[in-house]
Amino acid sequence: MNILAELLAYACLVSGAFFVIVGAIGVIRMPEFYTRLHAASVTETLGSILVIAGLVLLAGFSLVSVKLLMVLLFILFTSCTAVHALAKAAIHGGLMPETDDDD
């Protein structure tokens, strides 16, 4: 395999793992539900994009890569829908977000 692609893949994997963990830490650190949503989406967007991109680079040009890209696409589609549905359910259930101002 091309050594450059391999190095790039490893860089993607390491930084992807970093963002996955950062998102999880954010979910612990953030003070209330609505702010945690933002932290979770760090894992769900950049974390998964980088991890899957690293794997695609390792797999090369094959059907495995196509499946990986499908996984990524579906994660992005469904996670943002789920986050929206969850935020909506919370609003509906009467959990009011804390905000800094009242405008």
Binding site: H38, S41, T45, C80, T81, H84, I91
Partner: peptide, 12 residues
Amino acid sequence: NSITLTPGTVSL
């Protein structure tokens, strides 16, 4: 959905 996908903003 683009708003939700961008961390830092969630469409309610």
